[in-house]
């Protein structure tokens, strides 16, 4: 009795399992059929997870940061006081020190970007339009390789190079160049060095897309090299330059490590944010300071969008 019961139970389970298996096997087909008929559903399944991650979590975090910047900090307990006010921004606006740090940071970012454009353009032009295809590949690798070496180590290498009796003063002495020492110049040099590949590569890609026939046509029509550069090459790589500048500018704007390694006692916006998150534990003020680079970058991105540069990033 017991045994038969078990047996029938067994077959029932087996039958259930078989049905389930059949259903599961048909599921991809059925799902596929449904998906095939409904492109909108397909789209939402594809875009859903990335949007949850970036649109909800990341944008949410940025939104929360902005809200925090409108709160204050209890000066005695150090805890966040959830009262809405603009005190943090007022302090930023009125304080001479923070205004100076902001201008210094933007100045450094702009300087780095200009230096990188001036170096990257001729290098990219040589790679794309003068070097042989074999040489071109070697150069692309040569430019890419340092990108993979540690950021910190490269910054530290510059610290050693720029030291009192380091390589720069040693070899530069022969040409009458002395090391600038640790300070703003050293920060600009080091950051320009670190981000140079991010400028070379988009410009190179942009120049590669520019057909040689355009240059030939310009020359056939009697334009000199300088004229061809100004009227043909520069306008066509302009979006690529903007794309590269987004990286050089943004990466410089948010940096606080390089300035600590080669910047001497100078501070950038990043240091103010870092110190307020860490030592001072004043998150609302740190959040307010962090909105400065965000606003600058959003304006920059909006301007860049008009040039069509974002397609090139």
């Amino acid at each position: 009795m017991n045994q038969t019961n078990n047996a029938s139970e067994g077959t029932l389970v087996a039958r259930l399992l078989a049905a389930l298996r059949r259903f599961a096997a048909a599921l991809p087909n059925r799902a596929s059929a449904v998906l095939h008929r409904r492109p909108r559903l397909r789209l939402s399944l594809l875009i859903g997870p990335p949007m949850l991650w970036l649109g909800v979590a990341y944008l949410g975090a940025l939104g929360a940061l902005f809200i925090t910047s409108l709160w204050g900090q209890d000066p005695f307990t150090g805890t966040v006081v959830r009262e809405w006010n603009l005190d943090n921004f007022r302090l930023l606006w009125e304080s001479e020190v923070y205004r100076k740090i902001t201008f210094r940071t933007v100045g450094i970012a702009a300087g780095v970007t200009v230096i990188d454009i001036l170096i990257a353009f001729p290098v990219a032009l040589y790679m794309a339009k003068v070097a042989s295809p074999r040489m071109r590949n070697i150069l692309v690798i040569a430019v890419l390789t340092p990108l993979w070496a540690s950021y910190l180590v490269k910054a530290y290498a510059w610290r050693i190079m720029l030291s009192e009796d380091g390589v720069v003063s040693d070899l530069g002495g022969l040409l009458g160049i002395d090391t600038p020492g640790y300070g703003l110049a050293a920060v600009v040099i080091t950051l320009a060095y670190l981000w140079l590949p991010f400028m070379i590569l988009p410009i190179y890609a942009g120049l590669e897309r520019l057909p040689d026939s355009m240059l030939e046509a310009s020359m056939d029509l009697g334009a000199k090299t300088g004229h061809t550069m100004r009227r043909v090459v520069l306008p066509s790589v302009f979006p690529a330059v903007i794309a590269g500048s987004i990286f050089t500018f943004s990466l410089s704007l948010g940096d606080y490590i390089t300035v600590r390694i080669v910047g001497g006692a100078n501070q950038m916006l990043g240091n103010v944010v870092y110190d307020n998150v860490g030592a001072a534990n004043n998150l609302p003020f740190a959040a307010a300071v962090a909105t400065i680079p965000v606003v600058i970058m959003l304006v920059y991105l909006a301007a860049a969008r008009r040039t069509g540069a974002l397609e090139n990033v």
Partner: peptide, 14 residues
């Protein structure tokens, strides 16, 4: 595109 420090502090806070 946003400076790393912004992403860092926003995520830290969140």
């Amino acid at each position: 595109a946003l400076p790393g420090i912004v992403t860092g502090i926003a995520l830290n806070n969140a």
